[in-house]
Design a protein around this nucleic acid. Sequence first.
DNA 1: ATATTACTTAAAGCCGACTTTAAGGCAAGA
DNA 2: TCTTGCCTTAAAGTCGGCTTTAAGTAATAT
Lengths: 134, 134
Amino acid sequence: MNIKEASQITGVPASTIRYYEKEHIIPAVDRNKSGVRDFDDHAIRRISFAKKMRDAGMEISTLKQYINLFDNVENSEDEQLALLVEQKRLMEEKRDKMNDAIDHLAHKIDNFDTHMLRIENELRTMKANKKERL
Amino acid sequence: MNIKEASQITGVPASTIRYYEKEHIIPAVDRNKSGVRDFDDHAIRRISFAKKMRDAGMEISTLKQYINLFDNVENSEDEQLALLVEQKRLMEEKRDKMNDAIDHLAHKIDNFDTHMLRIENELRTMKANKKERL
DNA sequence: ATATTACTTAAAGCCGACTTTAAGGCAAGA
DNA sequence: TCTTGCCTTAAAGTCGGCTTTAAGTAATAT
């Protein structure tokens, strides 16, 4: 499978796939005799994993760290597990912040009429204050 | 309250507060007679709101849009409500993606031993394949 | 044969979101 | 008075994460 198909299947632009390979975020992809990349299932899964983690806000540097740790069998299982656990924790933390923000917006939506009146009042007060100050 | 205190209270760097003011993400802050910013509760709340939304991944441009819409009483309530609802939807979408990634990591953690063996086997197979190809 | 289309690379460019720098102003304490 | 420590601005710099460009190769269609 060529890079265009790989791109369509994974939803990751071809330029980004090349970039990910260069940055070792995905392993070196097999080439045919003329040097064209030939993606197999494993490659596709690696791209999809990278996408999933990127979509979830994991940084390239962390992803790289993660990948290197797992691709290198020399590394201790403890280290690998610790990284997994830590990344999960960080993501949960971030997700909780998102839920906070969502709640904040939900609250504003629920109280929209009241909120509007309050904002308008605030503005009226601010304008009055400005006039006083002049 | 000066910018240093405002920064400490909100957890937003002074340079970022200045940047937010310049970009109209927070309203123009009051100044004392020598031109030094004097932050009040309202200003602090606006900074904290900006931080919360940024932490949740809302882009500066969207935040600006949001702020402008709400600070300008001329705008229709419908438009404002629509923006709130849309932003909430986008954030929920993003949060769901994070939960996906978290589940993925949780799964890897749960099956760590098995996973390790699978990875090792994969690598062994890959190496064997490479040798064959040579 | 030539045009088209898809691939390749290295390097440069771009964008968002700050952060740093340079040059200076003001107020308080030694 | 002068040093300390805060503040100010505009402009330049940085960084992450791609994306685009330029120049070229290879296979296929006309």
